[in-house]
Write a protein that binds this DNA or RNA. Structure first.
Length: 491
RNA sequence: GCGCCGUUAGCUCAACUAGGCAGAGCAGAGCACUCUUAAUGCUAAGGUUGAAGGUUCGAUUCCUUCACGGCGCACCA
């Protein structure tokens, strides 16, 4: 149990005083008819406001208190904004005024009724005729001027962060709008939103380590999903031609400023489409979200001007490596690539092959240069077990990832629908696993069985929602776009 | 996992190249004040300096270990 500071003790004492006065410090209800932002907007351009005409009832948290003897000012903050209130001894009476002065603190939530007016200095203010304590706060808020700065406390006690740092709430409102914009966009295009299992007996759809949990009644281990890909494609087999899901995925690996163990991924699948269609769709979804939410596709991310207007630059992975490192990976043999990798200290995980080497080169030389939106297309077969081979070149698959602001924003392919090829790819993954790549895919027999019934040609697209929100809110860390980022427990 | 930095009052920060009684602003308490807005004036208070150990007459300061966080690198679709 934490030590109780004097400030908290004082507030507990005030709480007792309030109860002694027979006032409920935690009443049940307060009927409001306005929000601060609405009042601020409505009267923004009206200078002369007649007294005692525009009556309002609003509620919020007291953020500042300024007493002047028999008259007091305060700012209260509701879900929308702040507004000043003005309380006079003459109007609310001695008892209530003394109660306000002595027992109501910054941080308390109150409801006020009164009328809108302007003070001598011109600030829009509510002239309080009556007020009511709605919730006594027992902990002091951070300082009014600097707010809460300490990042650890901001992440651990996000509620305080949200109270004191208005721009933080703005980021999360923007996050919600982005998701809403994408959902509306997809619904307009005939996509159906579905829910698929989070607890999965066989995990798949991505290269990652899962969280393992246990179901007692069935006495089986289950995995928290690392992706929902394989379930959504089962639905394509089951004649959902256009499906999507905002999926909370869980990956049991390192954390840094672009990785949280649980994160949000949009995955969508469209029958009779290929990865070219998905490129257009990805550009449209992202630029449309920017336009709808920010009003522009010209954004600034971490100091870089970025233009999200489609069409985006398209580059094959091989060409991108050529451009940023001068190495023509296609012209070199596996042995030659291997020696360059060794010389440059590039590590390859799992089984070394030309494909895994090319992918490692891409990650080393290219990724960190991709500031303007760029579609990197045609990935090596070995690192893409769920994508269809590239037309005319069996070494590569029809897969792309959109990048912007040096962030990897998604992943898409022409989905592999040949069940025999798919089974071989899974078997290849099992070999990778035996070679020591514990993140390689596991065999999913039921998924292959679904493909055996026949899946139409399908384009699939995944978009990392957290990273997209980072991009559109100019946030440097994924922790700034996740309300409650994962932290080590407090001690 | 590695490296660097940080952790001092409820909050935001000082206490330096020197090891010598730990300080300020805001918040809080008391008094005054009927249009303030980082309200103002006066008064008094507020600390196990993240934890444990070591060096020293003496440690916020130097050393070691640990905890938590941040940043960078590595890992990771």
């Amino acid at each position: 149990m934490e030590e109780i500071s004097d400030l908290i003790r004082q507030r507990h004492e005030k709480l007792l005083e309030i109860r002694k006065l027979d006032i409920d410090p935690y009443p049940y209800r307060y009927a409001i008819d306005n929000y601060a932002a609405d009042i601020n907007n409505k009267f923004a351009s009206i200078q002369e406001i007649p007294h005692d005409v525009h009556h309002v009832r609003i509620a919020g948290r007291i953020m500042t208190k300024r007493g002047h003897g028999k008259v007091s000012f305060a700012h209260i903050q509701d879900s929308t904004d702040q507004i000043q209130i003005f309380i006079r001894h003459n109007d609310v009476g001695k008892e209530k005024y003394d109660f306000y002065r002595q027992l109501v603190d910054v941080g308390d939530i109150i409801g006020v009724e009164g009328f809108v007016f302007r003070t001598r200095t011109g600030e829009l203010t509510i002239y309080v005729k009556d007020f009511m304590l709605l919730a006594k706060s027992l902990r002091p808020l951070p300082e009014k001027w600097h707010g809460l700065q300490d990042k650890e406390t901001r992440y651990r006690q996000r509620y305080v962060d949200l109270i004191t740092n208005p721009e933080v709430k703005q980021v999360f409102l923007t996050r919600t709008k982005i998701i809403q914009s994408i959902r509306d966009f997809l619904n307009r295009r005939g996509f159906i939103e579905v829910d698929t299992p989070i607890l999965q007996p066989i995990y798949g759809g991505a290269t990652a380590l899962p969280f393992i949990t246990h179901h007692n009644a069935l006495d089986i281990d289950l995995y928290l999903r690392i992706a929902n890909e394989l379930y959504l494609k089962r639905l394509i087999v089951g004649r959902f031609d256009r499906v999507y899901e905002f999926s909370k995925d869980f990956r049991n690996e390192g954390m840094d400023k672009s990785h949280n163990p649980e994160f949000t991924m949009l995955e969508l699948y469209q029958a009779y489409a290929d990865y070219e269609d998905m490129m257009h769709l990805a550009e449209e979804i992202i630029s449309n979200a920017a336009k709808e939410v920010l009003g522009t596709t010209q954004i600034v991310y971490q100091g870089d001007d970025i233009d999200l207007t489609p069409p985006w630059r398209r580059l094959t992975m091989v060409d991108s490596i050529k451009e940023y490192s001068g190495i023509d990976v296609e012209a070199l043999s596996e042995a030659e690539l291997c020696s360059i990798a060794k010389q440059k200290g590039i590590e390859v995980k799992g089984k070394i092959s030309k494909g895994t080497l090319i992918y490692a080169f891409f990650e080393t030389f290219v990724e960190s240069n991709l500031v303007q939106p760029t579609i990197i297309a045609d990935y090596p077969l070995e690192v893409s077990p769920l994508a269809k081979k590239k037309r005319g070149n069996d070494m590569f698959v029809e897969r792309f990832e959109p990048y912007a602001g040096r962030l990897e924003l998604g992943n898409a392919f022409s989905e592999l629908n040949d069940p025999i090829d798919q089974r071989q790819r899974f078997q290849e993954q099992l070999k990778q696993r035996e070679a020591g790549d514990e993140e390689a895919h596991v065999m999913d027999e039921d998924y292959v069985r679904a493909l055996e019934y026949g899946m139409p040609p399908t384009g699939g697209l995944g978009i990392g929602i957290d990273r997209l929100v980072m991009l559109l809110t100019d946030s440097n860390s994924i922790r700034d776009v996740i309300l409650f980022p994962q932290m080590r427990p407090e001690r």
